[in-house]
Design a protein around this nucleic acid. Structure first.
Lengths: 176, 176
DNA sequence: ATCGTATCGTCTGATTCGGACCATGGGCGA
DNA sequence: TCGCCCATGGTCCGAATCAGACGATACGAT
């Protein structure tokens, strides 16, 4: 029941357990890997250590499997559930951060050969096209199931962003 | 001349010095603050420590002001310039990461009150509108100066992303 | 001269990071 | 039924990142 700050990682863990029910760290790693992990990646080691911390804080409780690997299964306590609700209800003043190596290279491109730009743009076009097809696939597969419909909404944001980036890099490829 | 890996921070430092010439860490902090820092933020402490590291690696050289604060002024060595060129020429396989608390909250919103969404959307609309006007301002002020024209290109990407996000959150605000 | 404040810089402890590395056990061939 | 392979599941570590409190210096206004 010790205290400490809750980071985004904490909420991802609490939230994911909230959505899928009692989970092992491995479950978390996989679930995050094909959901929010597409936008914001979390090293898997953290998805093992964070639940321990949250348990010490009283936001999760553990149970150990009686068989096989005797894995630890974490579930939300009432406090944990409340912490998520409070987070969801709190205002969000932060602006997103778009960490993009490609855009860095574009910004500094004057310092290198201008031919680099075309290659950069081509590679980015490929990346974004791939990602778009992954997202569209997910939408096709789960978009129709009412159970998952709400969780698919953020995917629309992801798609919008990908398409914006694709348009941008395509225009760069043409200009140079 | 010790070695070690170069991180994005390293390239931001090298690149910024490349673009603006010999700089103090404070210069870097300010320059980054109103350029790449809009997309990807770097704690200022790192813009003080990183140049030291790069100097040890032989990529920067220092000179100390003879007057006043005797600040350290860093400039690129040939190796430093070459390191940037190599980075710019190297392929970029990474996909950008969009760290967005708002989209996290949207994803997990089922766990809270659905009324939260509208507030979230409204706040995001405000944020993105503000940011768009900042970017448009920069474009208006510097876009016409040939000297800066190239550096303004990534700003178009930023604007596209902001507008995509704004469209998305506006549609959310309407739907809920 | 001294004071206030914008400029400039350092430090710290906690967290995050990537990635190498380790462990388990269920299924499959012999 | 044995054993061994390898996908699954998990730990560990040193380095980089982080926020933000705190400290120092210069310089103009009084």
């Amino acid at each position: 029941m010790s205290s400490g700050r809750l980071s985004t990682t904490s909420y991802v863990v609490l939230g994911t357990i909230g959505l899928r029910g009692p989970s092992t760290p491995y479950d978390l790693k996989r679930a995050v890997g094909h959901s929010v992990g597409y936008f914001w990646s979390f090293p898997h080691a953290q998805l093992y250590s964070e639940p321990e911390r949250l348990e010490r804080m009283g936001l999760l409780e553990v149970e150990t499997e009686q068989t096989g690997r005797r894995r630890k299964i974490y579930s939300l306590t009432d406090e944990g559930r409340e912490a998520v609700r409070a987070w969801l209800a709190a205002p969000t003043h932060e602006h997103f951060e778009m960490r993009d190596i490609a855009e860095m290279k574009l910004f500094f491109n004057e310092l290198g050969d201008s031919g680099n730009i075309v290659n950069l743009a081509r590679e980015q076009i490929k990346q974004h096209e791939e990602r778009i097809s992954v997202y569209e696939d997910m939408q096709r597969r789960f978009g129709s199931e009412p159970k998952y419909a709400r969780r698919m909404i953020p995917l629309r944001l992801g798609l919008e962003m990908e398409r914006a980036a694709l348009r941008f890099w395509s225009s760069i490829a043409e200009e140079f």
